[in-house]
C-alpha cells in the first residue's frame, strides 16, 4: 500500500553472473561454503563440521556468502540439489571462483558479484532480498514488501 514501506532498505550494485530476477529470504554467512562433502544435496543443508551454518538449509533462500571452497564437485552437488528442489533461489557472493560461477550457471539462479558495497555487511539472515541478475542489482528489505 504505502510506497515508503515498499522502498528497499538498501540497494547494492554489482556485476551479473547469471541473468534473471528472483527474490526470497536471505541466508547470510561469513564463511565460505563447500559443495561436495559440505552440503547434503537431498535437503540443501550445510553439513561441514564447525561451519556456522551446520544443520541449516539454503533451499529456496537467497544465499549470501563470501564464496565457494573445497571440492571441484561444487557445481555438481548444487546442480543435483536443484533437481531435488533444494537449491537457493538466488545467490550473492564476493569472491569469484570457477566453482561458484559454474554452480550458479548450471543452477540458473540469478546471481550477482563484485558489489559496490559489501553485501555481508548490509544483508542479514531473514531479510527479504531481490536479486536482479540482468541489472546487477540487489534490493534488501527488512521483511517481504506488501
Amino acid at each position: 500500500m504505502s510506497t515508503v514501506l515498499d522502498k528497499p532498505r538498501v540497494v547494492i550494485h554489482g556485476r551479473k553472473v547469471v541473468p534473471g530476477v528472483a527474490e526470497g529470504e536471505a541466508l547470510v554467512t561469513r564463511q565460505t561454503i563447500s559443495g561436495w562433502g559440505g552440503v547434503n544435496l537431498m535437503t540443501g543443508t550445510v553439513i561441514e563440521s564447525r561451519h556456522e551454518l551446520k544443520g541449516v538449509s539454503f533451499a529456496n533462500k537467497v544465499l549470501v556468502f563470501p564464496g565457494a571452497k573445497g571440492s571441484s564437485g561444487w557445481s555438481g552437488i548444487f546442480h543435483m540439489a536443484k533437481l531435488r528442489g533444494m537449491a537457493p533461489v538466488a545467490m550473492v557472493f564476493n569472491i569469484m571462483t570457477t566453482k561458484a560461477a559454474l554452480g550458479a550457471v548450471v543452477m540458473r539462479t540469478p546471481t550477482v558479484t563484485e558489489c559496490d558495497q559489501d553485501p555481508l555487511d548490509l544483508i542479514k539472515t531473514g531479510d527479504w532480498v531481490r536479486v536482479n541478475g540482468d541489472a546487477g542489482t540487489i534490493e534488501v528489505w527488512d521483511k517481504k514488501p506488501e
Binding site: G70, S71, S72, G73, W74, S75, G76, H79, T97, T98, K99, L102, G103, V105, V106
Partner: peptide
C-alpha cells in the same frame, strides 16, 4: 578434483582451474 588440480598447478606447473563436472 581439487587435489589433482592443486598438484598439477603447484608441483608440475601445468595450468588448470578447479573445474567442475559440467565444464
Amino acid at each position: 578434483e581439487s587435489s589433482a588440480v592443486v598438484f598439477a598447478n603447484s608441483v608440475i606447473g601445468a595450468r588448470t582451474n578447479c573445474e567442475g563436472r559440467e565444464s
